[in-house]
Design a protein around this nucleic acid. Structure first.
Length: 670
DNA sequence: GAGCACTGC
């Protein structure tokens, strides 16, 4: 590369390589031919193949946007949808929102002129509620399908149904190598013949095409003997690289914040013993819990004579891409969520990664030049890893998905054609919950209007039920704010490393005796009256400004839905809850119970909680007001097991009698 | 005394 030239004569590298130089350009004609010929095309393309940015443009040029039709390209993540749209708009020399646009929750940057539209796959599913055949699209490209997110999997099932009714619709699935045949088998069904020519399977519905990427080779090394403590071993490896290998930044994969902090601590302690004349180390953490500003540091080039070491969770495996990484250190584990249908409890535990994940992590070392991947496990261990991670649909609470499918007219969930079907127990558990909430009837059909409306609200079923019950408790305005705050999933307060006592005293200023939900209401109301235009007010109170701005958007959206259902919302009392006039806490506590009765617990003399059936010991999460307060009965929003403790979050006191009053069937004493 | 990563008109 011409780095000397760049320095001496002021040249800077082009921001983007001209599209014609991308490997995909060579396949333009065969790609457009395949899409014309086959209803489903599986595109196997590595990083840097240009599939996401170029393929939609080829299809546009080939006439797929004539007669006012649109090409949709879905992404599992919001940021991807917006950044890719921006890039393609630049290449097509238009503004985002003109010929090229994107659509994500709260941001629809499209117009009548939009021919190529990037959107989250969740958003396309939402569109299917209004337009079940997705008739405005001529081509739907499902990008990153191999990640197997919940909404990608549901979308694939829906698309398989749609193509039977719309023979002119074209589907493109972008996938990693490993899963391409699974996708084709899924769409081609009986026509799939594994022995046929790979480029022409079955001769009708689908085909696979591979695009070469623009990746450099990555040299992969395993440990000879297993490591006793992989954090310790990772730190040693960082120093081995630093003292023995050529320049280049390091990306270290660990499982969570605690490990990351420990590793960074150890690295900085040992860095003190480095030769002062030797290059130094700059160690940076990366995990989702950091603020955006804190995350931005990892993208800045290291100062001169300094090697950057990024210590990251799984976020750097697919969601965040950092250039300049030459060395990857992979601990071989990741924290994964799973849902236990027999207890209804989610777990978050570190588990061995899959071979596909290990390959993806290694690939992070080969983006700018040949790299090395150091795996902190043996080759034997690697061989024993599962090929791919269990898809989310097989380890999630399916109540929201079941409701959504039913709203799309798919009543028989067990017989719905999933790429991989969820375990029956997950479906049964979801149906039981929806039945107890009154969302489905004895025949497992969505009730009208309750179940239909719950399906349309973009909150989980329990909260949806609470919102729809709120008018009869005269607390809808308050409950809208509470639902919006709960949707933020614990991001209301900014994490503060230093002074924990200060953080606690800030929280206490907003604390409400009845529990976390009313405290959220208090924070929301203070924000809209005092802090809405003032991020400093939020900083002073250790509140997350961006999260609260988002809460305002979510509340607005939920309010518009309810108005569309014809529900009146009296906002006149919204800032005056509490004692005296307006809504009493009791109305809110009662209303919450109508949705969260299945999440009830009783406090024990030792301060822990027990479920109604008495079996499980639960702990108030330290972020909850109930962490060190007395209560009798409570309801909670979330229950999760980490390590060997089970925590409940977003906890509010109730009376035992509410449970019998609002869920007599559920708590019937026989 | 603490939680991986995502998402919804």
């Amino acid at each position: 590369m011409g780095s000397e030239l760049e320095l001496s004569s002021g040249f800077i590298p082009a921001l983007y390589k001209p599209a014609s130089l991308l490997p995909i350009a060579r396949h333009k004609r065969s790609l457009t031919y395949l899409v014309e010929t086959y209803q489903v095309t599986i595109v196997v393309g590595q990083t840097g193949s240009g599939k996401t940015t170029q393929l939609p443009q080829y299809l546009d040029q080939a006439g797929w946007c004539e007669n006012g039709k649109t090409i949709a390209v879905t992404q599992p993540r919001r940021v991807a949808a917006t950044t890719v749209a921006t890039r393609v708009a630049e290449e097509m020399r238009c503004k985002v929102g003109e010929e090229v646009g994107y659509s994500i929750r709260f941001e629809d940057v499209t117009s009548a002129a939009t021919r190529i539209k990037f959107l989250t796959d969740g958003m396309l599913l939402r569109e299917a509620l209004v337009d079940p055949l997705l008739s405005r699209y001529s081509v739907i490209m499902v990008d990153e399908a191999h990640e197997r997110s919940l909404s990608t999997d549901v979308l694939l099932g829906i698309l398989k149904k749609i193509i039977k009714k719309r023979p002119e619709l074209r589907i493109i699935i972008s996938s990693a190598t490993l899963q391409a045949e699974d996708f084709l088998r899924f769409f081609a069904g009986d026509e799939y013949k594994p022995d046929a020519e790979p480029a022409n399977l079955g001769g009708g519905i689908g085909t696979i095409i591979s695009l070469e990427g623009r990746m450099y080779p990555v040299d992969t090394l395993f440990l000879e003997n297993p490591a006793e403590d992989y954090v310790e071993r990772a730190v040693k490896t960082v120093f081995d690289i630093h003292t023995q290998e050529a320049e280049g930044d390091v990306l270290l994969f660990l499982t969570g914040r605690e490990e990351i902090d420990r590793a960074i601590q150890m690295i900085s302690e040992r860095a003190a013993y480095l030769n002062p004349k030797a290059p130094s180390l700059l160690t940076l953490p990366l995990y989702a819990g950091l603020t955006t500003d804190q995350q931005m540091y990892v993208f800045e080039p290291a100062p001169e004579n300094t090697r950057k070491v990024i210590v990251s969770t799984n976020i750097a495996e697919a969601s965040v891409t950092i250039d300049g990484i030459v060395y990857v250190i992979d601990c071989g584990f990741a924290k994964l969520r799973a849902y236990n249908p027999s207890t209804g409890i989610e777990t978050l535990t570190a588990v061995p990664i899959s071979k596909a994940s290990a390959t993806q992590r290694a690939g992070r070392a080969g983006r700018t030049k040949p790299g090395k991947c150091l795996r902190l496990y043996t080759q034997q261990t690697y061989e024993s890893l599962p090929e791919a991670t269990i898809p989310e649909i097989q380890r999630s609470n399916l109540a929201p998905i079941v409701m959504q499918l039913k709203a799309l007219g798919i009543d028989n969930i067990v017989r719905f054609d999933f790429l991989t079907s969820p375990p029956a127990e997950l479906v049964i558990r979801a149906l039981e919950l929806l039945y107890s909430l009154g969302a489905v009837d004895d025949y497992a059909k969505l009730t009208k209007p309750l179940g239909m409306r719950m399906a349309e609200l973009a909150v989980d079923p329990m909260m949806a039920k609470v919102l729809l019950a709120a008018p009869s408790f005269k607390c809808l305005s308050e409950m809208l704010s509470i639902a919006a705050m709960v949707s933020l999933q614990g991001t209301v307060w900014v994490q503060h490393d230093g002074d924990k006592k200060a953080a606690e005293s800030h929280r206490r200023k907003f604390a409400v005796e009845e529990g976390d939900h009313l405290t959220y209401l208090n924070v929301y109301q203070a924000f809209v009256t005092k802090g809405k235009k003032d991020s400093k007010w939020c900083r002073d109170h250790l509140l997350n400004y961006r999260a609260l701005v988002r809460a305002v958007s979510i509340r607005g959206q939920l309010k518009r839905y309810l108005e569309r259902f014809g529900i009146q919302i009296d906002e006149s009392l919204s800032s005056r809850h509490g004692a005296g006039t307006g809504t009493s806490p009791e109305q809110i506590q009662r209303c919450l119970t109508t949705g969260y009765f299945a999440h009830a617990a009783k406090m024990q003399p030792d301060g822990t909680f027990k479920t109604v059936s008495g079996g499980l010991t639960l702990h108030a999460h330290p972020s909850s007001l109930m962490f060190n307060r007395k209560a009798d009965w409570v309801i909670f929003h979330e229950i999760m097991q980490t390590g060997n403790k089970t925590y409940i979050r977003d906890v509010t006191k109730i009376e035992k009698s509410y449970l019998l009053e609002y869920a007599p069937e559920y708590y019937r004493v026989s």
